[in-house]
Design a binder for these strands. Structure first.
Lengths: 151, 151
DNA sequence: GTTAAACTATTGCAAATGCAACTATTGTCA
DNA sequence: TGACAATAGTTGCATTTGCAATAGTTTAAC
């Protein structure tokens, strides 16, 4: 018997929204959104990335990301470069300031995760992560298409 | 060692966004958003609800929900009533059309969930759900406060 | 019983989002 | 090589969103 409130998509969204709300609060004093933090943290992990790759990783529309990276660049947290050997891609990198800010915020992220999984065993957390990865790979990528239109 | 791409919040968001994208596509032909579907499915489950309760359950801002329910009402999928014994709350109910549409869409939701958890055992799915519930209850509710401001 | 406080929903407004159109560059194939 | 297709990113525009302010109603306090 189907129950919305016991369905995976619903529970997933509910947990995701709440965790994002909390983190959003934590980093608001630095005028960062969660997506912005993810861009920074991603770049710290990979050193550099194109816009398109970043969009995939951060799960955000490329047009949105373009503007978002624009504001990060304006704040000197990242740099944007078009390589000479390839004029259509844009390479995004962390600036020293960006790196410093990211490292300052990482403890909050870790702390938040710890709070979220409180009461779960290491094995349970591992299982959770692998379930989340599996669901992601079980579903098609929907590039471009697909009205999100609320209302 | 912290890695964004192996953190729970990140994996949660990634899976949630993707599953929502897919479902969004599925129901786009009925001009419904995921949030709208959740409102309908929720009302089917509970028969009636106030706006505030709905907002909690569906994890959206009450102002957003107010407008969303407004458009659902315009389409005769739900009804809005202010009870005589309490003039400040609004009771939202499914209309027969709303109920019919919801029941038409439920199979899609079930199918989607099945696709998402493909390859996982019943026990794994149960563990996943309980982990998602636990994380939700582990985190504070953030009523009202908290800039979400991207950009 | 009257005034103040709390609660519930709606609306204004500015910011953010996504799709589509566009620009610019690179790759293909004849 | 030259034209056409494909790729990558940006921008325009309409829609959506969230916060703050507001309006209306009920509860509490005195």
């Amino acid at each position: 018997m189907y129950k919305l409130t016991d369905s995976v998509p619903y529970l997933l969204n509910r947990a995701g929204v709440r965790i994002a709300e909390v983190f959003s609060q934590r980093i608001a004093e630095n005028d960062l959104s969660v997506a912005m933090y993810r861009v920074l943290a991603m770049l710290r992990e990979r050193k550099e990335s194109t816009l398109g790759d970043l969009a995939d990783v951060v799960s955000v529309e490329i047009s949105t990301l373009s503007r978002l990276v624009g504001t990060l660049a304006k704040r000197k947290l990242v740099s944007r470069t078009r390589p000479e050997d390839n004029g259509r891609i844009v390479i995004v990198r962390l600036t020293p300031q960006g790196e410093a800010l990211t490292e300052k915020l990482m403890p909050f992220a870790m702390e938040l995760e710890a709070t979220a999984v409180q009461g779960m065993s290491k094995e349970e957390v591992t299982a959770l992560k692998s379930a989340l990865k599996r669901m992601h790979s079980n579903l098609p990528a929907m590039s471009g298409k697909g009205k999100t239109s609320d209302q």
